[in-house]
Amino acid sequence: MGQIIENIGNISGKMLLFGGVYSNLQALEALKQIAEKENILPENCISTGDLVGYCAQPEETVELFKLWGAKSIVGNVEIQLRENAEDCGCDFREGSRCDDFSQQWYPYAQSKLSENSLDFLKTLPNHINFNYANKSVTVVHGSYFNVSEFIFKSTDWYNKKTNFEATKSDVIIAGHCGLPFHHQEENKIWLNPGVIGMPANDGSPNVWYVILNDWQESFKFTHHTLAYNYKLTSRLMRNGLLPKEYARTIVTGIWDNTEILPAFESGLQGFGIQL
């Protein structure tokens, strides 16, 4: 399937950005309530992909997302699912713990998704472009060049700069790495809102999202934490079919391992996130 880029034109008003729902229905329900409380239109709510993942309710999560009417690009998981691939395409090192765990949750997700949900995933674009507060914005999953590329705060600016050049963007909104951050250089902003399906390895069960504001035509963003019924999420994951380690992470806020993390981010495990 070729690259699909959706241009949604000029956007105004508050926007809600998030990623990695990971089949976490309870977190998605809580986030939808935040959008409604903040009077953010569904079409101004954008996911960086991976609606489906580690948690126990993939079908229910996709159904709620469709009902909400928010927008999303594809993550690597959606690409693999809609192509009926054998693995999640997360670019985990073969034989790693993450790779072993994916051999449990990915087939589980495959088995639970209806044809209607798979058809919906096939409609999602690879990237979304829009203009906001006099800035050109592109939404990607990993990077513009590779849906499964892990880009962190500590990733060299050069790696990010090539994405701005290729997309001709002032702002790139990205996902995949699981950690919220922003990196500003050369009048460009790389903004990762984090994910709502799993904690950010910071020792808290709360998860992360971003709200954009164009007040006085100025591009402003704020990182926020989201509290939700994580105990129910964890309990549902302890079904004998999903990794119990991920069910524990939902509660503790600490990742089972830091295999994908650079040294800097790995060293911050459990210390909280300052943004």
Rank of each mutant, 00 (worst) to 15 (best):
L81K: 00
L81V: 09
E83M: 12
N84M: 07
N84L: 07
E86V: 13
C90T: 10
R93T: 09
R93Y: 08
G95C: 00
S96R: 03
R97H: 15
R97K: 11
D99S: 07
D100H: 14
D100Q: 12
S102P: 07
Y106M: 12
P107W: 09
Y108V: 10
Y108I: 05
Y108N: 05
Q110Y: 01
L113K: 08
N116W: 08
N116F: 08
S117I: 02
S117D: 07
S117F: 01
F120V: 15
F120N: 04
K122Y: 12
N126I: 15
N126C: 10
H127T: 02
I128D: 05
F130R: 04
N131S: 00
N134V: 06
N134C: 05
K135P: 13
K135H: 09
K135E: 02
V137K: 11
V139D: 10
H141Q: 06
S143A: 14
S143R: 07
S143D: 12
F145A: 07
F145R: 00
N146G: 15
N146V: 04
S148W: 08
S148E: 10
E149Q: 05
F152R: 02
W157I: 01
W157T: 10
N159Q: 13
N159Y: 15
N159M: 11
N159D: 06
K160D: 14
K160Y: 02
N163I: 15
A166P: 13
T167E: 13
T167R: 08
K168Y: 01
K168T: 12
S169N: 11
V171N: 11
I173Y: 06
I173F: 08
A174G: 09
A174K: 14
G175Q: 04
G175I: 04
H176V: 04
H176L: 10
G178E: 13
G178N: 05
G178M: 08
P180S: 10
F181W: 08
H182S: 03
H183K: 05
Q184D: 02
E186P: 04
N187R: 14
K188P: 10
W190A: 03
N192G: 04
P193V: 02
V195P: 11
I196R: 05
M198S: 06
P199R: 09
P199K: 10
A200E: 01
A200V: 14
N201L: 03
N201P: 03
G203A: 07
S204F: 00
Y209H: 04
Y209T: 12
